[in-house]
Every structure is written in structure tokens, then in C-alpha cells.
């Protein structure tokens, strides 16, 4: 459990990092928090020739809200998101800080980064689920400058993303606020990767449910949306009884729509059952959060969005 030999380079800027990646070629790898890469290197499942350490790039660290939505710098740690007190973030995207406690354990969250999580592309990672749920935009920077990749085009399969080897993921952007959203999951131990995870975001307008999004982890090689179930997310009220029925129907539809595989952590049938349970629970949690929000805030996005400090 010791990594194969590698060289280590520390990047001084994004440009420097990109230069190093171009210079060192395809066997070089970026290291951010190291919480996924280091274990893989210790098992020699990853054998980069060089590590380009971007950990010192303060410019990639932080969250801010503007007219384009919520920006999260790639190097922002899970823990920074978890402990974020910015009212604009809490009003528009409360699901993000609330979901962080599902990621591993505290020491991992203080080192692991949002960008690392998304770039790593683990189908069970909370950030992969949240970006899928909320139609995030992944901002990559390469030698030719920046490009924006919609999440729908980003996760290509098992640990595979649209990011090119010489590109850096610099930012994760959530264009639209999602004040009524929740993520829940099931694993045997706290802090484990989920067997199945589910996230739901609801569009609530004037006391009625006008639509929503459902994303699932643990049922395919990458997080998936389930349009068949999302289509059922309509209701004329936000009364718990009626919403309960809506979520139950959506949960059944989601369970029917997915085609999970078997492995030692759970059979396909079990995973489908978990989808049913968790979609229902995430739906209820999202609507509960919604009622709390609706009570004292008619408009979820604060005007005069804050610029990055």
C-alpha cells in the first residue's frame, strides 16, 4: 500500500498548472485534496508519472453568488461548503451545505474538494448527484481557455468524465437556485459511499408543485435523472397528504425506470427498493424544507447578488 514512484510538482497558478500538464503529458495527474487519488495510488490502481499539486491555488477556493448563479471554486472543500454561512448560498442552495455530512467523515471533508469529487466522477459521490440534480455547469480551463460543460454532457460513465487530461476543472456553477431540495441515501455505516442515493428538487410556485427533478446514484455507472418520475411531480397544493401520494407515485416510477446491477453491496431488487424508499423520503424532506422556506421568504433568490470578495 505504497504508491509507485512519481514526481511531484507544485503549481503556482492555474496557468502554471496547465503549463505543467501540457509539459508533462498524459501520465501526469492533478492532485487536489488527495482523498480519492491517494488511496488509488496506494493500491497502485493509479500510477501517475507526475503529480501536479494545485492545493495552493487560493484563486480556486470559495463560494459566491452572482447573476449567473452560485459559483464554487474547484478547490473549495466539502467542509467549507458544509460550514458556509453566506445568506445568499443558504437561501438559494441550502441543499448543498445540508448534504455535506453524507460525505465520508470530517477529516475527509476538510481535505476533499468539490472539484476533485466532480473530476473523479464516482457515480456515488454526492457532488456528482447534486450537480446532476441541479443542472450544474462545469467550468474547465485548458490551454485554449475556458469552456463550460453542461452536466448532462459531463459524466460519461464509470469514473469517466468529459474533462480532458490537460484540462483543469476550475469551477462548478449552479445556474438556478434550488431552495426546495434534499438529498438522502442509505449505507450500512455512516460515512460510507451510499448503496443508493437519491436527490429531489421541487419547483414550488404559489403553493403548488409545478415540477421537479430527481437524481439517483448507485443505479448506473453515472448519476442518472429519471424523467419518467419527474413528470409526476405536479400537485395543486403543498399539503403533506397530497404530496405524500405524489412522492409515492414518483418513487414507484423511479424504481420502475432504473435498471441497477447486482454486487456485494446489494442486489438489483434491493437497490430498486431503496430507490423507492429514498425518492419518497427525499421528496418529503424537500417539501418540508420548502414549507420552512416559504414561511418567511417569498422570493428565494436575494436581489443584488453578491460579488466574489
Amino acid at each position: 500500500m505504497k504508491p509507485a514512484p512519481f514526481d511531484y510538482r507544485r503549481a503556482r497558478s492555474v496557468a502554471d498548472a496547465l503549463g505543467l500538464l501540457a509539459e508533462l503529458g498524459g501520465e501526469a495527474k492533478v492532485i487536489a485534496g488527495g482523498q480519492s487519488l491517494m488511496p488509488m495510488m496506494a493500491f497502485r490502481l493509479a500510477r501517475p508519472s507526475h503529480l501536479v499539486d494545485i492545493g495552493g491555488l487560493g484563486e480556486l477556493r470559495g463560494l459566491w453568488v452572482d447573476d449567473d448563479g452560485l459559483h464554487i471554486g474547484a478547490l473549495t472543500t466539502h467542509h467549507q461548503v458544509e460550514t458556509c454561512t453566506d445568506p445568499a448560498v443558504l437561501a438559494g442552495w441550502p441543499v448543498l451545505p445540508a448534504s455535506m455530512s453524507w460525505i465520508g467523515h470530517l477529516p475527509i471533508r476538510t481535505l476533499g474538494t468539490v472539484g476533485g469529487s466532480v473530476a473523479h466522477g464516482d457515480a456515488l459521490a454526492e457532488w456528482c448527484l447534486l450537480t446532476t440534480l441541479l443542472d450544474a455547469v462545469l467550468v474547465a480551463e485548458g490551454a485554449d481557455g475556458r469552456r463550460e460543460i453542461p452536466v448532462a454532457d459531463f459524466f460519461l460513465g464509470f469514473f469517466t468524465t468529459a474533462l480532458l487530461p490537460d484540462e483543469l476543472l476550475v469551477e462548478v456553477r449552479f445556474p438556478a437556485p434550488a431552495p426546495h431540495a434534499a438529498l438522502t441515501e442509505y449505507a450500512e455505516r455512516h460515512g460510507d459511499y451510499a448503496i443508493v442515493s437519491a436527490a429531489v428538487s421541487l419547483d414550488l410556485v404559489d403553493g403548488s408543485l409545478r415540477g421537479g427533478r430527481i437524481a439517483l446514484g448507485g443505479v448506473a455507472d453515472a448519476p442518472v435523472r429519471v424523467p419518467e418520475a419527474e413528470a409526476l411531480l405536479t400537485a395543486g397544493t403543498t399539503h403533506p397528504d397530497e404530496l405524500g401520494g405524489v412522492f409515492a407515485a414518483a418513487a414507484d416510477a423511479a424504481a420502475a425506470a432504473v435498471d441497477p446491477g447486482d454486487d456485494q453491496h446489494g442486489s438489483a431488487d434491493y437497490r430498486r427498493s431503496l430507490v423507492r424508499t429514498l425518492v419518497q423520503r427525499a421528496g418529503v424532506q424537500a417539501s418540508v424544507a420548502a414549507r420552512a422556506v416559504d414561511d418567511d421568504r417569498p422570493a428565494a433568490v436575494p436581489a443584488g447578488a453578491r460579488r466574489r470578495p
Partner: peptide, 16 residues
């Protein structure tokens, strides 16, 4: 063996 790390060998933690 399919348990080469604590990912798969599920030793409970203080939480459990």
C-alpha cells in the same frame, strides 16, 4: 478476497 480495504470490510465506527 473481496475485502481489501475498509470500503468493503465494514468495521463499525463510533457512529454505529
Amino acid at each position: 478476497p473481496s475485502c481489501a480495504s475498509f470500503l468493503d470490510y465494514k468495521v463499525p465506527t463510533a457512529w454505529e
